[in-house]
């Protein structure tokens, strides 16, 4: 297992470089002058040139690329144009809030989505199955800012059950949890919908496998057959999807943070956008690349835990 983790970690490094390269190419390939975007078209040529130099975008493309990759790999993400503080510092300060949100919504999504998907599969083509399928399709059709606003309107503004403002005191666990409830539901709903659908189809597939029949032929009670024999196999595709949607989750957390006015990466992005803090944006881009590679790594490790065939390969 340790070897497997080590191998995966090593393999993740080239992936990170590759991801950074793709992002770099995309950003540079599309025409446009960041300095102009930051300063606006009223800016003097001198100011533009100065900013280009500060951002390092006056250098040749290859040098820019080299700088970008080295900086990213050494953890030096530059300094904010506005506050002058290192990007990494600003990110680390708010990261716990975003992680709280992402992880809690993932937990919610798995805790509800897996049982619902199993249930739907067992009741295939009966009422429960149809209801779950339609509801989950609605669930994943909600952009999170819309579902967030709807939840906010009902539970915070109308019933006043939850606070409107999401800024919480990290040291106060009760407060931290309390303010996490609505954002978690918002973000979790999409997760629940996706995981339900994947679990359902994976279960349907697995339930018709020969080894499930073997287990029944051994006299294993139906509940154990489902849990031990079917579900463990069905979780393999579920892990893939959870990994994929963890990325989407990170993206959606931006919207959730805006709606619930929570601190976090999303708020940092939006602030940087409003302040036209290009250096900050570029640093955040690297952070997101990093998060995505980490997500993929975690997905791979989860495979190793569930599927014994993976470690061999």
């Amino acid at each position: 297992m340790i070897w497997y983790v080590a191998k995966r970690l090593l393999a993740a490094m080239p992936t990170l470089v590759a991801v950074l390269t793709v992002v770099f190419v995309i950003v540079r390939i599309i025409p446009g002058d960041p300095a102009l975007t930051v300063l606006g078209d009223q800016a003097t040529p001198q100011a533009l040139a100065a900013l280009r130099e500060k951002l390092g975008i006056d250098k040749p493309l290859l040098a820019q690329y080299f700088d970008f990759i080295t900086a990213a790999l050494t953890g030096d993400l530059g300094r904010s144009l506005v506050s002058g503080r290192p990007v990494i510092q600003e990110v680390v300060a708010v990261l716990p809030h975003t992680l709280d949100l992402t992880i809690s919504s993932l937990v919610l999504g798995t805790a509800l989505g897996v049982p619902l998907g199993v249930w739907a599969a067992l009741r295939r083509n009966r009422l429960a199955d149809y209801v779950i399928r339609i509801v989950s399709l609605v669930g994943l059709s909600f952009p999170v800012f819309v579902s967030g606003i709807f939840l906010l309107m009902v539970f915070s503004l109308h019933y006043r059950l939850f606070p409107v403002i999401g800024t919480s005191n990290l040291a106060d666990l009760g407060d931290r949890t309390w303010k996490l409830v609505l954002p978690t539901i918002t973000l979790g709903l999409v997760m629940v919908a996706y995981i339900t659908r994947v679990t359902r189809s994976a279960m349907l597939q697995v339930l018709s496998e020969d080894y499930v029949r073997t287990a029944r032929a051994k006299g294993v009670p139906a509940r154990l057959v489902i849990r031990r024999h079917a579900l463990r196999n069905a979780l393999i595709p579920v892990v893939t999807v959870v990994g994929l949607y963890l990325g989407i989750n990170i993206g959606n957390s931006v919207l959730t943070e805006i709606v619930f006015n929570r601190p976090g990466l999303g708020k940092v992005i939006v602030t940087a956008l409003n302040q036209r803090d290009y250096a900050m944006l570029q640093g955040l881009m690297v952070i997101y690349c990093f998060l995505i590679v980490v997500t993929n790594l975690l997905t791979d490790l989860a495979y190793g835990l569930i599927d014994p065939r993976v470690k061999q390969a």
Partner: peptide, 20 residues
């Protein structure tokens, strides 16, 4: 594969943010 692993919203955000 790398493009696919990038969440659409984040990629869109980065591109539009940097290019206006």
């Amino acid at each position: 594969d790398i493009l696919l692993s990038f969440p659409a919203l984040i990629l869109g955000l980065i591109i539009v943010a940097l290019l206006g």
